[in-house]
């Protein structure tokens, strides 16, 4: 555990909680892609199956349980409790175009051809692209609520901090995991355009809206 890893986890946690609170307080999930949230629930479920097979630490177990619990709570709020506010017409990204290739890639490129390892690999690949339906939705509507941009910033920052964590671990622990690193780079790159808009607009007090 190093400072990048810890702040990465906390940034991830902050993102998840910001989104839950935003939906809960406003009683609305307008502008939020339910598809991205379903993908994140799948990501956590397939990655954290090792909760059932191995114990690493209290920290590890509690974070995993919180992430999974919050992911399903978010999906529940979007598709059940505040379903009437869900903007399904704008959430039109075809997720099968992500899940199918990612599933194939996980079977082909992994560290070990075993059930849990393939699911872990699948979750790493899927996470790297799971935000695309949300970004697609924003590009379609041309705008995002400020609180939604805070959520996206924390979510993007988390993987960027993990990249620093992996650089740290490479130098100080001679450890690296090529699958996680490549997927993490892809994931972070997908946020770059958004980071630019966040810094140049949202942090200067303007709403994030895209030119028509």
């Amino acid at each position: 555990m190093n400072v990048f890893r810890l702040t990465g986890d906390l940034s991830h946690l902050a993102a998840i909680i910001i989104l839950l609170l935003k939906i809960w307080k406003s009683r609305s999930c307008a502008g939020i892609s339910g598809k991205s949230q379903i993908l994140f629930a799948i990501v956590f479920t397939t990655r954290y199956l090792d909760l059932l097979t191995s114990f690493i630490s209290i920290y590890n177990t509690s974070m995993k349980v919180i992430y999974i619990g919050c992911a399903y709570a978010t999906v529940y709020l979007i598709y059940m409790k505040f379903r009437a506010t869900y903007d399904g017409n704008h959430d039109s990204f075809r997720v099968e175009f992500l899940v199918v290739p990612v599933g194939g890639l996980a079977v082909l490129v992994n560290h070990d051809f075993s059930f849990l390892e393939i699911l872990w690999t699948f979750s790493i690949y899927l996470e790297s692209v799971a935000i695309l339906p949300q970004l697609f939705m924003i590009s379609k509507t041309g705008e995002a609520e400020t609180i939604t941009t805070h959520y996206l910033f924390c979510l993007g920052l988390y993987r960027a901090l993990y990249l620093l964590n992996w650089i740290w671990r490479f130098y100080f622990e001679s450890f690296f995991d090529m699958i996680a690193i490549v997927a993490g780079v892809v994931q972070t790159v997908l946020y770059c355009d958004f980071f630019y808009l966040y810094i140049t607009k949202v942090l200067k007090g303007k709403k994030l809206s895209l030119p028509a």
């Binding site: 991830h12 690493i56 630490s57 992430y67 450890f175 996680a180």
Partner: peptide, 10 residues
């Protein structure tokens, strides 16, 4: 297996 070490990450 070296990659098992990574499983402490979230």
């Amino acid at each position: 297996k070296g990659f098992d070490k990574n499983k402490d990450e979230l």
